[in-house]
Design a protein around this nucleic acid. Sequence first.
RNA 1: GGGCGCGUAGCUCAGCUGGAUAGAGUACCUGGCUACGAACCAGGCGGUCGCAGGUUCGACUCCUGCCGCGCCCA
Length: 582
Amino acid sequence: MNIKDILSKKVSAAMVAAGLPEGTNPALSLSNRPQFGDYQANGVMGAAKKLKTNPRELATKVVAELDLGGIASKIELAGPGFINIHLDENWLAAQLNEVAKDEFIGVAQRSVNADDKQQTVVVDYSAPNLAKEMHVGHLRSTIIGDAVVRALEFRGDKVIRQNHMGDWGTQFGMLIAHLSDKLASDEVAETALADLENFYREAKVRFDNEEGFADRARADVVKLQSGDETCAKLWQQFIDISITHSEDIYAKLNVSLKRSNIMGESAYNDDLSTVIDELMAKEIAEESQGAKVVFINEMANKDGEAPVFIVQKSGGGFLYATTDLSACRYRSGKLAANRIIIFTDARQALHFKQVEIVARKAGFLPENVGYQHCPFGMMMGDDGKPFKTRTGGTIKLAELLDEAIVRAAALIKEKNPEINDADLTEISKKVGIGAVKFADLSKNRTSDYIFNWKTMLSFEGATAPYLQYAYSRIQSIFSKAGTVNNDAVIDIIEPQEKALALKLLQLEDVVDAVISECTPNLLCNYLYELASLYMSFYEACPILKEGISDEVKSSRLALCKVVADTLKQGLDILGIETMERM
RNA sequence: GGGCGCGUAGCUCAGCUGGAUAGAGUACCUGGCUACGAACCAGGCGGUCGCAGGUUCGACUCCUGCCGCGCCCA
């Protein structure tokens, strides 16, 4: 169900009938003012410009050919050539009654057999560095990626999650050397690694100050990479425990990543030399000062100098570049991806651009496989500088989430002093975590953004609790109403009902936008607008009060049901939970 | 030095492929609970869209040049 699609096709047909070339963009959009109808088609003006004809006359012809019988109640020509479409309320109601019966609330499902083909989409997100604990900087990749993943799945695509964790590199030498000593003095790995941040700091201090430790650490890296069993075992212990830390965060955040989605950097080890061999054999890479490099001519500057992309260091070591190239091949080959999406911060934009160019040239990424790096900005403090604690440390994600839950609990207790502990625990978790996620997901900027405890943990205005509250209010009505008539027919009488219906029928359009541009903030905006329209409806259109006829009552209850389903489903895509009472 | 991104209300941010009078939230002010849950609703205040040109019937949106900030590669 996509109103915009339906109208676009109709207007396109009318444009062709009026003599415009096939494929002219009808430029359909939502009207921004009630007097301009519900949707407007602005394409005639652009087309008239190209043909050097009078836009108004052309629009008159298009309107004459435009057949919206049964769909629109009024079509108006305005200004230089705007075509304003007022939708028929009966048509809207009929569509909504269909949607009400659909388990996907009107969102068409892609599948292998459908015209709208299912795609296999590999999504690379979260990817924390296992050497340390997850901090606030990992929030964006994790939750934005997860929201896009769920949106893709809701639309019917096949998604393969890939958690490209940082589980390899020189720092692990220092960590396993330190771990080895801890275990030798009878400490249990779980205890030693209970606080990863501490552990890392201790190891770093030894590395910088302790005689001989740095050499040991470097030696351990070499041993680890050459397959030494003792080192490998220590490394595995470290990795396993660190992963458990991440899993705790994922569970708390309601993020769908599982251990089976982990495909860390180390997983590509065995393939790296092959990647280099192939690049050399295809004469894409060449030797330069002992290293293997690719000169990227596609990105040459005005003087014809191509940037250098190093794929193997002069000492023989591999880099992120090598791993990412290997990942391209694995994902398009073994995983059979039609599309690859990677969520990392914006600082890596150039890197991934170069990876794509090289991977395409090497055939690791066939032309028909999409490769989309989705960047986002860093988290900054109030001073506009990278976000740190007072002592200059990073803020642990776990601590932020706990703080959110504590604040939510205080608020809930204040609003509802009688609440029992079990409910309080559950609700404060959903509200607190939801607030943090929504605050972040609702922002679209690829540039940096200001982190602020107050706004992030706010429970008023355009926040997750507002949406959760709308949902709970509806549930409250249902429980008061008693039995709900499932065959009830929705009628549109009041303007608030029409506004709600129109909004509800835009879900597929919004989900598609989220999927194609990887921008969950569009869904956040949509859900906020939906909830807001519901709140207005709630004030203006009584349901259970005296004097409301059975027909109106059951119609409004049915409307409430679609709103509730849409809110729940939409929030679920964002990984935000709803509740009956709050 | 080269490249990428950003500058919109006091603050935090929307603004879809160029469209009609630039929108929300927050803060501030005014109303609304003998209750379908006030974590709410209705209304008000608040903008030279960084600056200057250009293209266009029409520019926050596209182009050019500055200014400021951030990042990446040297």
